[in-house]
């Protein structure tokens, strides 16, 4: 009963997520992303791979395929996207016992699949399968977003045709001087403060939303506000990912050729 009640009510984050000078706990302004660093082609074994850091959240992604699908899963219409999300046992503050296969990981896998299927041109590869493996090395809030962003880079690295970059970002609500100020790219501390967290995966260049998830109830007055902030974040991330891909291609061709030859 008690938990039900909490779920049922609107949750307001503590008032001190923003300082009186308008800075967040870690020194960012409300509309700023955490620092993103990323690298494509970190492994040689898979067809495509990427490493991405979003603040202290660190994620590895590996893509295998497209290859022939197993009989049971095979579809004549489109490629089957198979995702596996797992968190390293050392990724959180307290040690995890089960890196994958628990409810949360399964749900994450499903969500990843939904977002990535939306980006991949699935119709090109009937009767085949693409496997995407995600390993979270350190979780500091927004692990899902980092996973989506890393998976996009890995897919690009694997040469899988995409409709557009799929980028994910979170946003939350805070108040500054009585007026609502949505926070972009929520870190673990801000998440734990108990506010609503809106997760959006979108294809910024087409403007479509691939996935939308919200942790608590939020009054409809503020929803637009928070959503537009999250979408803005997705667009910002796209720019960063695009730059990383271009840099990788510019410097990487020669190196990679050497390796393959």
């Amino acid at each position: 009963m008690a938990t039900l009640r909490v779920m049922d009510s609107f949750l307001m984050p503590g008032p001190d997520l923003l300082s009186s000078q308008g800075l967040r706990l870690d020194g960012r302004r409300p509309n700023e992303l955490r620092r993103i660093r990323c690298k494509l082609g970190v492994f040689t074994q898979p067809d495509g791979s990427a490493y991405l850091e979003q603040g202290n959240t660190k994620v590895l992604a590996a893509v295998y395929g497209p290859h022939q699908a197993s009989k049971s899963k095979s579809s004549t219409e489109a490629v089957v996207v198979n995702c596996q999300y797992s968190m390293a046992t050392f990724s959180t503050g307290e040690r995890k016992n089960r890196p994958r296969g628990d409810r949360k990981s399964l749900e994450m896998s499903l969500h990843l699949r939904q977002a990535l299927t939306a980006a991949i041109k699935t119709e090109l590869y009937p009767r085949s399968q693409i496997d995407i493996y995600i390993e979270v090395l350190q979780a500091d809030g927004g692990a899902y977003c980092a996973s989506v962003n890393a998976a996009t880079l890995a897919l690009v690295d694997a040469g899988v045709p995409l409709r557009a970059y799929v980028c994910a970002c979170t946003a939350s609500m805070a108040w500054h001087g009585g007026s609502p100020a949505p926070l972009l790219d929520v870190g673990h501390v801000e998440e734990a403060a108990g506010g609503v967290v809106l997760t959006v995966a979108s294809l910024p260049s087409t403007g479509s939303i691939a996935l939308l998830e919200m942790s608590h109830r939020l009054h409809s007055d503020y929803f637009e506000n928070v959503l537009s902030r999250a979408l803005q974040g997705c667009r910002d991330i796209e720019v960063i990912l695009d730059k990383a891909v271009r840099d990788h291609l510019a410097e990487g061709w020669t190196k990679q050729d050497v390796v393959t030859v």
């Binding site: 706990l25 870690d26 020194g27 302004r29 700023e32 500091d140 870190g187």
Partner: peptide
């Protein structure tokens, strides 16, 4: 006006937990 400057971490020891927090320095 998206700026991230030098990135530092701040550690805080609890009982057994090691908490690492981001701390952005601005110009």
């Amino acid at each position: 006006m998206w700026t991230t400057k030098t990135f530092l971490t701040k550690t805080k020891r609890g009982n057994v937990l090691k908490i690492v927090r981001e701390h952005y320095l601005r110009d």
